[in-house]
Structure formats: structure tokens, C-alpha cells
């Protein structure tokens, strides 16, 4: 691994090894402080500056075992179904995005067709469309398609939004696969689709995993789309719950909010710790561009 080599680089003697640690640590302090605050404010009635007021309590976490006693959660679906909804949404969007963008990425990497340059450039330009300010127009489209307040509608929108990034990343991965592997399959008479599915996809598995993790996180955290386009109570996700708890500011229970926020982050955090190595291969493709 390149890292190991760099870490053992001879520069070590001239660049004291503590310096990068010190710089990293210093730069990371704000993040550390913010998240430590988040963590311990979920265990106290309230925090002033750094100072907790009141005694240690797990009261803020009671939404897990006694949601009925939390006024902000009255008349909301219980937390477990919400978590499942969120999981379904994130999984579906990342799977569909992976499929669609790896197909398109393959085409851009391997096929020659009219308008290829324009399309490829255009895909990147799509990202400059301010998706959020197009919400009203998207509503018009979804209503026209009969997909307003339907899970599938929101999944499709989220999938589409993820495409510019996904296509570019996947194209990079396909660019890096040696051509002879694919050619032997083509020579054997396998069709393009079959070759893509049987030969190429397994080869870009690291890319699919890395992109998949990122897309999953985006789906998991997505707030605005489910919130605006899928308002029905039974289909809500954790992000809309957090937003709901935030209320209008006058009745906010910050202890509860931090606890729910941590609950919300936890699965993603675990996923990231497990998948870090995969994730660090996200751009293996484009390096030699």
C-alpha cells in the first residue's frame, strides 16, 4: 500500500514525525469539541458552554424505550419503523443509482457513439443545476406522473440527483480496467450487456462498494426530498423526525434532539468505520486521466 511507503519515507528524519500529528490534531479540534459536546449533552438536562447543568441522566434517550412519554413524539410513528423507512430509502436509492450510473459509466468509458463528448460534459454540468431551487418544478413533474407522496417518486428523484457524481466515478473505474479482459469475452461472442454484467461489474467491485457507501449515506441523510415530496406520516424518515423535534425553537428539547441525532448518526458511523478502506478507493479511476 502506498500509505505504508509514504509513512516510511526517508523524509522522516528531516520532518519530525510528530509535526503531522500535531497539525492534524490541531485542525481536528473543532470537530472533536463539537461532537464531544453532542455526545455529553445527550446525557444531561442542559449544557451551558461546556458546563453540564444538573445530574447525569439517560432521560434524553427514553425515546428508545418509552416514546409515549416524550411530548414531541406524540402522534408520530415509532422510531423503529422510521429507522426501517430510512434504511429502505437509502438502500433503494443507492442500489438503483449504482445500477444506472455503472451502466452509463460503462458506456462513457467503453463505447463510442455520437454526442458522447457532449453528453459526458453535460453530465457534469447537470450538477450545476440547483436541485433545491427546482423543487417546485419537480413537484409539478411528480404530480404529473402521479408520484407525489409516493416512495418511488422520491427514490427516483434522489437517484437522478446522484447520477452526475456516480457516472463520473464509475467511468473512472471502467477506464482503469485493462481492455484485454473484456475483449476476450467479446471475442467469445458474449454480448455487451452480458460482458458488462459478468466480466466488468465484478472487476469494478471496489468502486461499486465505495460509491455505494457514499450514496447510502446521502440517502440516509436526505431531508428535503422525503420531507417535501413524501409528507405522509407513515413514510417519514429519521431526518424528518429530527426536523420535527427541532420545532419552532420555543419548545425545543435539546437533550432529546442530541440523543436522537446521535441515534441517527450511529449506523452511518459504524458503516464508515467498517468501510473506510473501500471508501478510500473512491477515486482510483481518474488518477491517470
Amino acid at each position: 500500500m502506498a500509505t505504508a511507503v509514504i509513512a516510511r519515507a526517508p523524509g522522516r528524519s528531516r520532518w519530525p514525525s510528530l509535526v503531522p500529528y500535531a497539525v492534524l490534531l490541531l485542525a481536528t479540534v473543532p470537530i472533536l469539541v463539537l461532537y464531544l459536546w453532542l455526545f455529553y449533552s445527550s446525557f444531561f438536562p442542559r449544557i451551558e458552554g461546556f458546563r453540564p447543568v444538573g445530574d447525569f441522566t439517560i432521560d434524553n434517550w427514553r425515546f428508545l424505550w418509552d416514546p409515549q412519554s416524550v411530548p414531541q413524539l406524540r402522534n408520530r410513528p415509532p422510531i423503529i419503523p422510521l429507522t426501517i423507512n430510512t434504511f429502505v430509502f437509502a438502500t433503494m436509492t443507492s442500489l438503483i443509482s449504482l445500477l444506472v450510473s455503472s451502466m452509463a459509466g460503462y458506456a462513457f468509458s467503453r463505447l463510442r457513439f455520437r454526442g458522447r463528448r457532449v453528453f459526458l460534459g453535460g453530465v457534469l454540468l447537470l450538477h450545476s443545476f440547483p436541485s433545491v431551487t427546482l423543487l417546485i418544478a419537480l413537484f409539478v413533474v411528480l404530480r404529473f406522473l402521479g408520484l407525489y407522496d409516493k416512495l418511488v417518486g422520491v427514490i427516483l428523484v434522489q437517484t437522478a440527483f446522484a447520477l452526475p457524481f456516480g457516472i463520473w466515478i464509475m467511468k473512472g473505474f471502467f477506464d482503469n480496467i485493462p481492455w484485454d479482459l473484456e475483449m476476450s469475452a467479446l471475442v467469445d461472442g458474449a454480448g455487451r450487456l452480458r460482458t458488462w454484467w459478468r466480466i466488468m461489474l465484478p472487476l469494478v467491485k471496489p468502486g461499486l462498494l465505495a460509491l455505494g457507501v457514499l450514496l447510502f449515506v446521502e440517502g440516509w441523510n436526505q431531508f428535503l426530498l422525503p420531507f417535501v415530496f413524501m409528507p405522509s406520516g407513515s413514510q417519514q424518515t429519521l431526518s424528518t423526525l429530527v426536523r420535527g423535534i427541532l420545532g419552532e425553537g420555543r419548545f425545543v428539547d435539546y437533550g432529546l434532539l442530541t440523543a436522537v441525532g446521535l441515534y441517527y448518526i450511529a449506523p452511518i458511523l459504524v458503516l464508515f468505520v467498517l468501510a473506510q478502506d473501500q471508501l478510500m478507493r473512491i477515486y482510483a479511476g481518474g488518477v491517470k486521466g
Binding site: 414531541q72 413537484f139 404530480r143 407525489y148 407522496d149 420531507f227 417535501v228 409528507p231 426536523r243 420535527g244 423535534i245 427541532l246 420545532g247 419552532e248 420555543r250 419548545f251
Partner: peptide, 17 residues
């Protein structure tokens, strides 16, 4: 959850749909 802006927007879109 008590947020007027959200609430009004939600009703507007629901009324439209």
C-alpha cells in the same frame, strides 16, 4: 412539529395535489 414554514408549505403542496 410546530414549524410554521414547514406546515404551510406542506399544506400548499397537498392542496395542489
Amino acid at each position: 412539529g410546530g414549524q410554521w414554514g414547514d406546515y404551510l408549505q406542506k399544506f400548499t403542496l397537498a392542496a395542489e395535489a
